[in-house]
Write a protein that binds this DNA or RNA. Structure first.
Lengths: 199, 199
DNA sequence: TCCACCATGTAACTGGTTACATGATTAC
DNA sequence: GTAATCATGTAACCAGTTACATGGTGGA
């Protein structure tokens, strides 16, 4: 069934609402003003998307009637919605998820520690990292094999792809260290990095 | 009139066809098999898009009737199409083109030297580079201002964005050097990645 | 009073997705 | 003869875009 097929925007909304109950307007502002700017922000996208989520019982909107304020429909995640979100967040990262869907992985990461905790975030990053590694080595092999016979612009475009994935790969390492550090400094003291050995 | 409003896929097709006359099937293979995989490749996208381009007189398809082969409709760019493509390629890069549309800029780059020559490619890269620089410094300022009060996952997601733009910025420098070198010596040195640590 | 902003919505259009259909040719 | 692959298409559906509409509220 395609019923359970929620577009990325839907997950973005669900994740934000799970973080904190919000109105459509609040959510639009998040997309418009923060670094999450890759998502919609137009009312013609947000409001219908919220209606869809509500009709799927993943969120529920209640009209706030605090004195003097204009009607604001504030959505909160239902139990079903919270479960669905966590199910989506818990999916393992497959090798080709990286290729067609890096933005989705980043979106999942951004909700990860609130919804599932730091340990889950770390293991997600580790899976992400190893998928990136295998995808990267594929790209590099392709570049080695075909680079010579490609026109300069093509080779450079490919190089740009490789660099961007390599950058993401490096970032996963940085992020894992940052998480580990936050866990140890929280438990012991704000000491300098004690890099955990291999898992 | 929305006349000049061509979706990215349309430009990708037009650019490839301008490079070399191709059938729908050929183009699908390009998207499916090369590193241009971010675009469609599904027949339900390609064929209607080709029809649209043809109805706009940007390309024209002629049925190839070489002996024994199945009918293949091979498209070639018309004069109007070639002009339109070059007009799109010639647009100056504005600061916010980078924010919402890095893929479009990369697509433009990949057709640039065939359609406009190496000099145009270099100056495009220079504009791209300076847009990246200003966007990057905005992001970094935002991170400095808000980093402290953001949750770890949010800070890391932002860091990933910064790194990816920084990677692109470094790449523009590399690409410019590669072009300059190709102009003088027809030889390009192998890639050397500049890895930056976290800010 | 009027403007700016809060807040929600709707309609028309567009283009991409999935899935299916069809038929020709080549290789075994 | 049958499977794979070349090659083109179509239909139903879906979600996002742009643009417009509406009305509440607070401050100048």
């Amino acid at each position: 069934m395609k019923r359970s097929d929620i577009p990325l925007l839907g997950y973005a909304l669900l994740g934000l609402i799970d973080l904190k109950p919000s109105s459509g307007y609040d959510l639009r502002k998040v997309f418009a003003e923060t670094a999450m700017g890759n998502y919609s922000s137009s009312p013609g996208a947000i409001y219908p998307a919220l209606e869809r989520l509500e009709s799927q019982r993943l969120i529920r909107g209640v009209v706030e009637d605090a004195a003097g304020l204009r009607r604001r429909r504030v959505y909160h995640a239902t139990a079903i919605g919270a479960t669905e979100l966590r199910k989506w967040l818990s999916k393992t990262v497959k090798a080709d998820d990286v290729m067609r869907g890096a933005p989705e992985l980043m979106l999942r990461f951004s909700f990860m520690d609130h919804a599932l905790g730091a340990d889950a975030a770390i293991s997600f990053l580790q899976e992400f990292r190893s998928s990136l590694k295998s995808y990267l080595s594929g790209l590099e092999a392709y570049a080695r094999a075909n680079g010579k016979k490609m026109p300069l612009s093509g080779r450079l475009a490919l190089e740009s792809g490789i660099r961007s994935y390599r950058g993401m790969y490096d970032w996963t390492g940085y992020a894992i260290r940052a998480y580990r550090q936050s866990l140890t400094s929280q438990r012991i003291r704000p000491a300098k990095t004690e890099r955990g050995g291999p898992k």
